[in-house]
Design a binder for these strands. Structure first.
Lengths: 363, 363
DNA sequence: CCGATTTGGGAAAGTGCTTTCCAAGATTAG
DNA sequence: CTAATCTTGGAAAGCACTTTCCCAAATCGG
């Protein structure tokens, strides 16, 4: 009783402080700090053990926030993602987080899914947190005002010493991992033409989403290179989601049915600008009583791993998503920022599978 | 020239501090703080405007780390996830992050995928960060030592004022969102028996993963209720992944082929303890030249949204994943911890689709 | 064996913020 | 018209750390 009282109050609330450790070890705050924060300064062995023991007994853990304030540098990396439930984003994020965590840093995710202005807001938050870096994953829209706002916020962030990188479009003037959407879509188009397809439809995603745009443009160029026309009526815009793909496919079928010739005009190959949309389109095709690829061929983009075993196997463009996340993380974790923003192109790989196989000509 | 020099150095490095703002506004640090951190204390209007203007001119943003140190409470919530690229986890995380972010908090994700001791390590990190709460998503293994270590760390965390919750197994003695794995698997088993299936195989996942265990146990119980035997040879353990499902299905086919009767013994229905494994199994079945459900029926668990359009549509158990994430977040964001840990059971819904349809008897 | 250098502990000054406490001036009540 | 209360600005004391600076003791070279 008397002993515990005189020994000074151990913080039973659980929040042991460095001072508590120092007191218990009978050393100065300074010494305790030196022992527990592996700095360059050496401390005598008997003190080291005493401090360590005291820390262990008190269950002490350094307050990293306070440390960050004192040292002026934090261990936080912000990750801006539209929708972490989307396999595209979550795959990239997974690669990213692995690298970040391996470097003893802390990855904080935003969910911008709700508000679109959320990106900017989150970067601002990261600045307030004095985060070490921020990584923005995902496609930029073409909304100039929003883009300008985001750029401004990023400038403020980097201006106050933070690093920034982006996976997607090279629009922010920062280090960027840039999937070659257009080139890959073009290659895909070529491959499909070679397979024998001629009448195409494109489920083009949102009109203002650059990634989607690039893929459409590349695809169109690929067709053009083979002198294959793409009927503009068959470029259907919609959401970048499963339902978007479903709806857009509905439109394709409706247009085909409405055209003279009673459907003879129907495209023989549909390109959905991402795999998730392709799945929606597939569902719609089946709902119409048609089969892929027998009645209509279908191709996607991204090669989402969860969808690699679907039937029919989906022709698509493989992007090394996890690798892209790792690359982004590596970019901002290099010692010093490059003089000018680096842009790392990431090629996609056309993967031809059954979903675009030309059916043998009917006898 | 003279002016700028005499006015005092504006921090051109971008890191404006509250003191800078106060100086520029010609007020005390205290007043600036009161204006910029909406406390209860009122400040005269002319000072408010002056401080705000100064802050705007300097591009000042409060250092949240410092604020956290000063106030003693942070805005961080740690989320422990095995593999964010797994749609099961990412769906839960999405719901979680939405709620967390809506409450102006910061969600930090771990990636435990690498090391299994990572969970404990991350909780420790969260304690060091003085995080407000930690949420552990995912199945616990039965490794007693590891579990004890994690519990210990969580105790330290809650002991120092943090909140903790868990989505998955009720093993940590904290608030838990508990999917009714066993009951749902049991219901699934019943439904499958009603559909006419009799000879079952179970792709059981890792032996030491409780979620997997529960599903197996529930499924077995469901069969037993109908006096349907489950041949123990057909309970195949393996990884909780697509490849695990593929391998396990290989074993099933091998056993069936090896049995006397030349495959007549083959199960007519296979239950994979999660959807991702079911996809792997599906791939294996197809590789064997068999069809689902014509030759063999297949059921999964989770109803992963990305897989809702696969062919054949997968019989499964739907868990409201995003909702579960939201619930978990809500649990730890309530004002005060409950006296005893709350356990919120979440029922699953059996969803019968084509993958388990009994083929019409052959003529 | 003595001056020069190293070693290592501690006091104190930051780090960027909040919050308590104090003291003037402005209101209000009686 | 004075005493009692509000207001409201600022000085200073935290918060939990790191780090600089100082100084005593120990080591070392010649």
């Amino acid at each position: 009783m008397a002993l515990t009282a005189s020994e000074g109050r151990e913080p039973s609330n659980g929040r042991a402080t460095l001072q508590d450790v120092a007191d218990r070890a009978g050393v100065s705050l300074t010494t305790a700090s030196r022992v527990l924060s592996d700095g360059p300064r050496r401390v005598g062995t008997q003190f080291v053990t005493r401090v360590n023991q005291a820390a262990a007994e008190l269950g002490y853990t350094a307050n990293l926030q306070a440390r960050a304030v004192a040292t002026g540098q934090s261990n936080m990396v912000g990750v801006v993602v539209h929708d972490i439930a989307d396999p595209y984003f979550s795959s990239i994020a997974a690669g990213l987080i692995d690298v970040v965590y391996a470097r003893q840093l802390l990855a904080c995710l935003s969910s911008t899914s709700a508000g679109e202005a959320g990106e900017r807001e989150y970067v601002a938050l990261m600045r307030a947190q004095r985060a070490r870096a921020v990584i923005i994953i995902g496609s930029r829209s073409t909304d100039a005002a929003m883009l300008a706002g985001l750029r401004e916020e990023i400038a403020a962030f980097t201006g106050s010493g933070g690093r920034a990188a982006c996976v997607g479009q090279d629009l922010l003037g920062i280090d960027t991992i840039l999937p070659e959407n257009a080139a890959s879509a073009q290659a895909l188009a070529s491959a499909l033409v070679v397979q024998g397809h001629r009448r195409f439809a494109v489920l083009a995603g949102p009109r203002d989403l650059l990634t989607a745009q690039d893929r459409v443009v590349g695809f169109t160029a690929g067709l053009a290179a083979w002198s294959v026309d793409l009927d503009p009526r068959y470029v259907i815009h919609g959401a970048f989601t499963r339902d978007g793909g479903y709806e857009a496919m509905s439109s394709v079928l409706a247009i085909a049915a409405g055209a003279q010739g009673g459907g003879a005009d129907r495209p023989d190959c549909v390109f959905a600008v991402n795999d998730v949309m392709a799945m929606g389109a597939l569902a719609r095709v089946r709902a119409a009583g048609l089969a892929v690829p027998a009645d209509i061929a279908l191709a996607g983009f991204d090669d989402i791993s969860t969808l690699r075993d679907v039937y029919p196997p989906l022709t698509t463009v493989r992007l090394p998503l996890a690798r892209m996340g790792e690359m982004a993380a590596s970019l901002i974790l290099t010692d010093s920022p490059a003089a000018s923003p680096r842009v790392v192109p990431v090629p996609g790989e056309v993967i031809l599978r059954e979903s675009t196989l030309r059916p043998p000509p009917r006898r």
